[in-house]
Structures are given as structure tokens and as C-alpha cells.
Simulated scan of single mutants.
Amino acid sequence: MMGNNDRQAYDRNSNIFSPDGRLYQVEYAREAVKQGSASVGIRTNDGVVLAAARRVRSPLLEERSVEKLHKVDEFHGVASAGHVADARQLVDVARRAAQVERLRYGEPITTDQLTTEISEHIQEYTQSGGTRPYGAALLIAGFQDGDARLFETDPSGTAIEWQATAIGGGSDRIREELEEQYDPEMSVEDAVALARDVLTDEDDEDGAEPTIAVITADGYEPRDGGE
């Protein structure tokens, strides 16, 4: 039977597997994501909607300072959940990747390329000594050449493509609602209304209006406080 000291050794190191094949620090990072307010992504034929709930814990807080949605380039945006500072670092990684692609090849980065760059960077922090996993997850949305894409990355560096999904606190409940209400033929405006609906929590007295951004053939468009 494994002693407490052995358990603590696996618990403290992000790059050592436990005997049952687990990376505890990565699992803890996933739990950190669940402590953050929720973000939602909904893909339609005409674009992608990103929306994020905001917790305003004081009437003195400036709502615009709570940033959950970020523009990466003209046709890409991300929504975050988890530690805000960690998410900011990942947003910077995404923006640099988009700039490098543009400068090197004279073309905009594709959504799957952008997702790969971010997820590979995240994964490095699960196997490098002296580092810890990012305590944030991202929804990466893009629209190029008539093709809407929506990906999720988590603290392990795993990337998954979705039609509609949620990350952060209450994401399981929100995903269930999306499964019931999502229609792949819905319009962008219908998706905006659905995102607002699933992010509304009557029991959350600290909640403010969600921030929303839409990515279509016209580019990234912030709405209701999106960056």
C-alpha cells in the first residue's frame, strides 16, 4: 500500500504520473477552471457566438474590467474560464501565433492551426520541471472562407472541436441545455439569444449581463461589453 509521503510526491509534481496513471496537478487545474464563471460557444452556418458570464461582487466594481472574451485577429476570438491571469497569458500566445503566421506567410492563421499552437503550449506545461499547468481553459472560435469552427482546450493541452459547448462553473448544466436547444441550422442571432438564455442563472445575485462576441464573414464583432 502506498504511504502518504509517496502520495504527496505525485501530488506535488505536475510532470510525474501516479501509479494509476494520473497527473494530479492537471486534475487540480481542471477543478480551478470549474471555479470560474462560465463561457459558452455556439457554432452556426454563418458564424460563431462566444458569450461569458460575469460575476460582479461589488457595486463599486467596473464591469468592463472583467474581461472574458478576447479578439485574437480579424476572424478569431477566444473565451476563457478559470484563472484570469493564466487565461491572459494564453491569449497572448494566441495573438503571437496569429501575428507570426501573418508575417511569415502573408496569410491569416487557420482556426485549427491556432488551436494547435495554443494546445501544444499548454501541454508543455504538463511535462516541464519547475512549472505548473495553466489553470484556465479556452474556447477558440474562428470564421474563414465560409467555414465556422469552434474548439476547446483544457489544462492538459487536449483540443476538441464542438458545435456548441460550455466551460467553467455550471458547464455541465449548460451543456445539457445546449444539447436540448441547439439547432445547427439556427441563425447567429438565434445563437446569441440561446447563449444569453443558458448563461442566465436566477440564483446568482452577483451575475451581470453576459459579454458577447460574434465572429462572422464580416470579422470579429464585440457586443454587450466584449473586448
Rank of each mutant, 00 (worst) to 15 (best):
P59R: 08
E117A: 15
V93L: 11
D46M: 01
R223G: 09
S37I: 06
V49I: 07
I122Q: 05
G21L: 05
E209L: 08
G77E: 04
A193W: 09
Q127M: 15
F17D: 04
A193S: 14
E180Q: 15
G207Q: 14
E152G: 12
G129Y: 09
D224C: 08
L23N: 04
E179D: 15
I140D: 00
R22Q: 04
L90K: 02
A9K: 13
I174W: 01
P59I: 08
Q89K: 07
K71F: 06
A193L: 10
D11M: 11
Q123R: 13
A195P: 05
G170V: 01
A166R: 06
G226T: 10
Q25E: 06
R88E: 10
P19L: 05
A166T: 06
T216E: 01
D204K: 03
D224N: 15
G170S: 01
I109M: 02
G142F: 02
D190Y: 11
D145Q: 10
D92M: 10
D206K: 09
E67K: 15
I212P: 06
G225N: 03
E152Q: 14
G21T: 07
R175G: 14
D224W: 12
F143K: 00
S14W: 09
D204A: 04
A81D: 04
R7L: 15
A32L: 02
V56C: 11
S128D: 08
D218Y: 01
D147T: 11
T153Y: 00
A137C: 11
D197H: 15
K68Q: 11
G82R: 03
D73I: 03
A217I: 05
